[in-house]
Design a protein around this nucleic acid. Structure first.
Length: 167
DNA sequence: GCCAACGTTGGC
DNA sequence: GCCAACGTTGGC
């Protein structure tokens, strides 16, 4: 039986500054999983709340870093739920305007799948014709949760020498 | 350090 | 609703 479009696995790219939270940090988390919290942009929030589903693949990108690179792959292990950090006055991402009864901000949980060794450098992405239209590479692209096409996903795995079955 | 690209804020 | 000022992101 053919898979319905609604259940097809989708792919994403999540950005993180490694000085704040790196792929190595994720590997040190219990169960190598964590809530992807602190997203405070409405477009990214909409993806987390409405689109990202359990089983989806995630490219973990290190932004504002040296080197700029995709550090590895995660998978989504829990779909969108309210971001607890928004309700925590001691958290850097606290948002007093977010009402627990009607939360503004959302997270998903991700779990590490594979570290890229070596990481796939931004320069390698830029050199790959299959990635010419990748959102990440567009000038001024700031979206911290962004969709990745299946073609782009496969191209990144190829650059990383990771078999698709392993991701 | 520079600058493009946004997003937010606040006066009107 | 409009828009200027300002702040942030993030690559170069």
């Amino acid at each position: 039986m053919a898979k319905s479009a609604a259940s097809a696995r989708r792919f994403w790219l999540f950005k993180s500054e490694p000085t704040s939270f790196s792929f190595a940090d994720l590997l040190r988390c219990k169960g190598q999983r964590t809530a992807w919290d602190g997203v405070r942009n409405h477009q990214a929030r909409n993806f987390l709340r409405d689109e990202v589903q359990v089983g989806d693949g995630v490219l973990f990108y290190h932004s504002s870093a040296d080197p700029l690179a995709i550090a590895g792959i995660c998978k989504v292990v829990r779909a969108g739920y309210p971001d607890p950090s928004a309700f925590d006055p001691s958290d850097d991402h606290h948002d007093p305007k977010s009402d627990p009864a009607r939360p503004t901000w959302f997270v998903v949980d991700v779990q590490a799948v594979t570290a890229f060794d070596p990481p796939v450098l931004r320069t390698a992405l830029q050199a790959d014709p299959a990635l010419a239209d990748m959102l990440l590479l567009r000038r001024g692209s700031r979206l911290s949760v962004q969709p990745v096409t299946p073609t782009e996903w496969r191209a990144v795995l190829r650059l990383a020498n990771v078999r698709e079955g392993a991701a």
